[in-house]
Design a protein around this nucleic acid. Structure first.
Lengths: 335, 335
DNA sequence: CTGAAAGCGCTAACAG
DNA sequence: CTGTTAGCGCTTTCAG
């Protein structure tokens, strides 16, 4: 067992309180007493017991972060952003993986709440409003910020991106670049996926292009799924000459499928993704994408959460939308 | 404030202990009493206060995980592996980013120790044996497992990969494939980097090929660094016809540099990386690499740590080396 | 400026 | 089977 305050106290023949105060540089401790205490503490290798402190102060300096998939580099970036903002303040981030599963998400939230995390940042796998996980958070009045995915119709702090605008931006770009038959590999039935699909449709509309249902195929999150989805699209006639993909991994998978059958990107089919994951410009064909500042999303979420933690009065719910930005690379360049 | 055991107890007119035991299904509580308690607990939305429990049980079910860079997908995979192994046991992972900086690493370890993490998994940025971070861990007798990077000469539990063998495997492959002038973009002065360099040299030796110092250039970890390093190599005459890169991101950056000047991969210069990050086969030219089962490294580290936690007697230090495996893709294929 | 008392929410050890 | 007594290591009053 490591040294406790008590040890320092008896060692120095002062009271426990003196030590406690000295260590936190409480104002009413004499300079020399403080110096003594601090030195002895160092000698004994004393570190405050955060658990004991938390029990009385009612704060743990722990922030829970629930994500559907850490391997997806979007979330890895969000985590990094959150950590970057929080670490200087001595907060720590507890990560929990929900594996895109609602039940496991609720379980994780429950555990994080039991641990008395000061707040929670949640990228929910929950499609509908107020799933179990949200219920638990509300019940315990644990401050939380939603990230990326916002369950429909839920009033809460939120940081994300304008998904519909992503769809519009990407699709319009393909159109302006000259594509006439634009397909979409869509994401799952969560707001992120739905929003991007909506944007895709409205861009087509704006440009008076007809919407062909068979040009929309479901691809989920991963490159493997994108690959499969693209193979379906490749069976269609006439072949699409442009594809807007739900996200970058999906787009990477799609490109793989296209190149594999001997077609060219962008010559035969232009491709655009979304997310601007860090390796996008290292892909077979550097990938055009919509940047959504993943790491900034994390930082902003942390910022919002900090505001919740530092003000008693729960202000109005705030939503921050990071502005998406078109990034043109080779996969959609030139004719 | 949420419900406490005491609330349930007075509510039901039983003692606090009965509640405590009932909730943990301690054997000597009557079935019906237990049912009552459990039901009331659910009604009140009771969740045990883990902090209070930890204070007395002396365990937090928290495992600290210190990595140099979360964005690097190798570490993201390690984190995932660790979490995967630990979550079913209700452990949580606290992540801490050291940003490849020794001072910040020590600070993080110190905080994690103060939080009373049951154990710590550390991918150290420390080049020399027993840096500050290790000292703190030893001082507090916090069980720990080193991952990926092992400070020289340090006796400790360790999970990693045979770096020298990676170097041999990769370099030999290039040689057998017909390369005569093999360069190496090396990593930093940590065991991982040094080991791979050593492997590179001994493979050259085995094949009676001369070692040219100017063919070894330093690239650090990132694709940006790999890009820069490759540009240096491209100024050399004669041009290398093969490059073994410290890791996949570096290799991806190197390929970018090569393609940019109009040379072909592997036609003019073959490239091989290490790490088999998940997007390797989606790159411009699908990247040959040495697989090191990143996620398995995480799982194994978690496994080792669990063994430390579950057995009082600290057994002998164990080192697990994941066997590296050559993966040939297009970047080093054919002549 | 320093210290004594009380308690955060829970559990271990033992007594009824 | 149930309850009582202590106490985990620290901080927050409030009195010296």
């Amino acid at each position: 067992m490591s040294a406790r305050m008590k040890d320092i106290a008896v060692d120095l023949g002062v009271s426990l309180m003196t030590v406690s105060k000295a260590l936190r540089s409480h104002k009413d401790i004499g300079e020399k007493t403080r110096a003594l205490v601090v030195q002895r503490a160092r000698e004994l290798g004393y570190r405050p017991n955060w658990i004991a402190r938390s029990l009385v102060t009612q704060r743990t300096d722990l922030v829970g972060l629930v994500v559907p998939d850490l391997m997806h580099s979007f979330f890895a970036e969000v985590v990094t952003g959150v950590a970057k903002r929080l670490e200087p303040l001595n907060y720590h981030v507890v990560i929990a993986n929900s594996n895109e599963d609602v039940v496991s998400e609720a379980r994780q939230v429950e555990l994080l709440v039991a641990r008395k995390c000061d707040g929670i940042i949640l990228a929910s796998a929950q499609p509908a409003a107020r799933g179990e996980s949200i219920r638990i958070l509300e019940e315990h009045k644990t401050p939380y910020v939603l990230v990326d995915r916002r369950p429909r119709g839920l009033e809460a702090h939120y940081v994300g991106v304008k998904n519909e605008e992503i769809g519009v931006l990407a699709t319009s770009h393909l159109i302006e670049r000259g594509c006439r038959r634009i397909a979409h590999i869509r994401g799952p039935e969560i707001p992120t996926g739905v929003g991007r699909l909506t944007g895709y449709r409205s861009a087509l509309n704006q440009h008076r292009m007809k919407f062909r249902p068979d040009y929309v195929v479901t691809g989920q999150h991963s490159d493997a799924a994108g690959y499969q989805a693209m193979r379906e699209l490749l069976r269609l006639r006439p072949l699409p000459d442009g594809v807007f993909c739900y996200n970058d991994p999906v787009a990477a998978g799609a490109m793989k499928a296209i190149l594999e059958v001997g077609l060219r990107v962008p010559g035969d089919i232009a491709v655009i993704g979304a997310g601007n994951v860090h390796y996008s410009d290292l892909l077979r064909v550097p990938l055009s994408t919509i940047d959504q500042s993943s790491s900034l999303i994390g930082e902003t979420a942390a910022e919002l959460l900090l505001e919740c933690l530092n003000s008693k009065n729960t202000g109005p719910f705030r939503s921050v939308f990071i502005e998406p930005r078109l990034i043109v690379r080779e996969s959609s360049f030139s004719g």
